[in-house]
């Protein structure tokens, strides 16, 4: 069983950054909120801490921007927001992802 456990890790690795972008599409969000959304609502993050290096990379790529905002219930938080480039990257991923997923499903179903 162990030799196959890495499949999900690899699939997540490629898709997670686009899921982060998708979570930011409705509006800006802060790290903890994103981590909870991805791990508790969607089960895409095993360790919430692994989100932060990814957020840093997305910022470096120019796909998200950050800004400090006052919080009603605590210290100011760093909010992440999708940039125009990030929007375009997400759209490009969506265009590729749907036919790719359909192709994989088709192969799996046809050979059952």
């Amino acid at each position: 069983m162990d030799e196959f456990s890495g499949v999900l890790v690899q699939l997540r690795k490629g898709a997670l950054q686009y899921c982060v972008l998708a979570c930011l599409r409705p509006g800006a969000s802060y790290g903890r909120q994103l981590a909870q959304q991805l791990s508790e609502e969607h089960g895409l993050l095993e360790s919430q801490g692994t989100l932060y290096p990814l957020l840093s990379r997305l910022r470096k790529q120019g796909w998200v921007s950050t800004a400090w905002q006052e919080s009603a219930s605590g210290p100011p938080r760093r909010y992440y927001e999708l940039t125009e480039l990030g929007h375009r990257a997400l759209e490009a991923f969506e265009q590729d992802w749907t036919p790719f997923r359909d192709d994989v499903d088709a192969v799996l179903n046809a050979t059952r």
């Binding site: 690795k13 095993e46 360790s47 919430q48 801490g49 692994t50 932060y52 290096p53 990814l54």
Partner: peptide
């Protein structure tokens, strides 16, 4: 507990050599 092990976090970070691009 929610954040996970420090090793798991380090495992997804980019290595120094390629970090700045």
């Amino acid at each position: 507990d929610r954040l996970g092990s420090v090793e798991a976090i380090a495992a997804v970070a980019s290595p120094d050599e390629h970090g700045t691009g």
